[in-house]
Design a protein around this nucleic acid. Sequence first.
DNA 1: AATCTCAACAACCGCCCCCCT
DNA 2: GAGGGGGGCGGTTGTTGAGAT
Length: 550
Amino acid sequence: MPCPCARELHRPPHPPPSTFHHPPSPPPPPRRHYHGLPPPPPARSPPFCLPLLLRGQGRTPPFQQPRRARGCVASMAAAPACRYPPKSSARSISRPEKLSAAFSLSLCPVLGAGSGEEKATSLQTRVAIERPRSGGGVEGGGGGGLKKGPWTQAEDKLLVDHVRRHGEGNWNAVRRETGLQRCGKSCRLRWANHLRPNLRKGPFSPEEERHILLLHGLIGNKWARISSHVISRSLAASTDNEIKNYWNTRLKRRQRAGLPMYPPDIEREIATLRAQNINPFADADGGNAGLQPPPPPPLLYDASNPFALPSPSGSHSPLINQNYPLLNQMQGMQQQQQQHVFHLAGGHQSPSLSPQPAFHHQDSSGTAALGHGHGGFVSSSGLPPLPTRPHELPSNQFDTSTTGGLLESLLLGGGDHQPRHNTSMVKVNSMPALTYRDPGSRLLPVHGAGSDSDDASHCLTGEDMYHGATWNFTFEDMKPAKRRTPSEAGISDMFGINAAGSIPGEWFGGGSTAPSPGPSSAVTDEEFSLEMQQFMSLLPLSIDEHSWNA
DNA sequence: AATCTCAACAACCGCCCCCCT
DNA sequence: GAGGGGGGCGGTTGTTGAGAT
């Protein structure tokens, strides 16, 4: 029997009114058919260029391609975000058993104290309760009856109320003070990924996708940093989990098709950036000058590669002074943008919005750095965050010392001067596409051995604008659109969040002028457009921009 | 109509780091 | 310096609905 709300799933997306000064957007692409005819080729994107990205050029308005709805809207609207039983149940019992093991009021103290409506809702949505793992395991290694699995509205409310009162952090206290039978980690995750204000739930624009690709190519699976960078550009938070999921699905898709993970232009951009080998903060703060080790050969730089630009002489020169002069402006505007954001918030910071350690960070050298706020409130500066965790070494995916440049500084805490390996060519296990060729070959990834001709046949064939060669690229804007999940709508409804994402009355003290509090779609188009217009107005136009917006 | 495949995504888990005592 | 708690991050699992077969 079809879901009574199935029509909701097929309802065409309704992009909210946008004040963007962009050409009319084409209708959302059809859902990608993996076994059908290849989709029409996407509009040609301009070469990926960090300055362009930082300037927001070519950015398509968010929410134009609402993400595909998942689940039954009717039930999800009043349901937790995830309706399936917890993993522990799913693994150990069959489906009928799972159903029988579903939510039991007597075993769920939170909902057991809730209203009958909550109970009914939970029953409808088969909210399962924690079943003992093998050996009676409980979350947290002895947490004694901690609940797992999908969150309920009641739990969300408890968590939100707690954060409202006490702010973020001290997550383990949530359980003590609210009786919420969740471990601190779970609370933090729930808050960070679903409940915190300014969460951006919507499709990644093509430009954001390219941005993600570039950042991933530069720093690897540093989802939080990628997220923070995207956040800074998008003025609202896309969670690291979201980006991670996006990447993983993309990875699987392209791996199946035997395709490279990165389009050639992005790879060239990666090579270019890594070839810069410069630290923009070396001269900017005066404290890092001379601290950077001599630039090792860049990861992707290959003398035989015409696209991996050679390291500029005096490669400590700020990138922004050489090839990306706009970054000078960007950096200078960061503080201004931050102040603007807080001004929009009414100049008041509630506890949860109080400066997070990583949000406005004063590093050891005394350089004020606007950092990412993973898990916390986000920057909406539209500018790349500055290093916040100088202690953090690059992951095993990349030896980022090979660039020592802007993005490492931005994303990996470029202030760290910890010894690094000097590897000119790194095979990245988690990034198969970045297993690069032998010298002399083109800067193209080694394709996977597997070849899904079916999928591959549907990949767009483009032209290597530098070589005239062809390339296959499954453009990401072909992916199905997503939309705000019903559970999030339910959360919003539960807390009285209006369509614009603001909560009537108090919400962290932000009031109606707060920057889009509330989960999902938190930044309204008006707010986004306002900031972007103000932002863009400070920047000169360029040929690229004209051509992109033409 | 049934089954399969896929994308999407929530949530858990383990590891690690930071901070405090 | 050692130990523990708090917290962050990345990897992974498992479930869903939709579309394809």
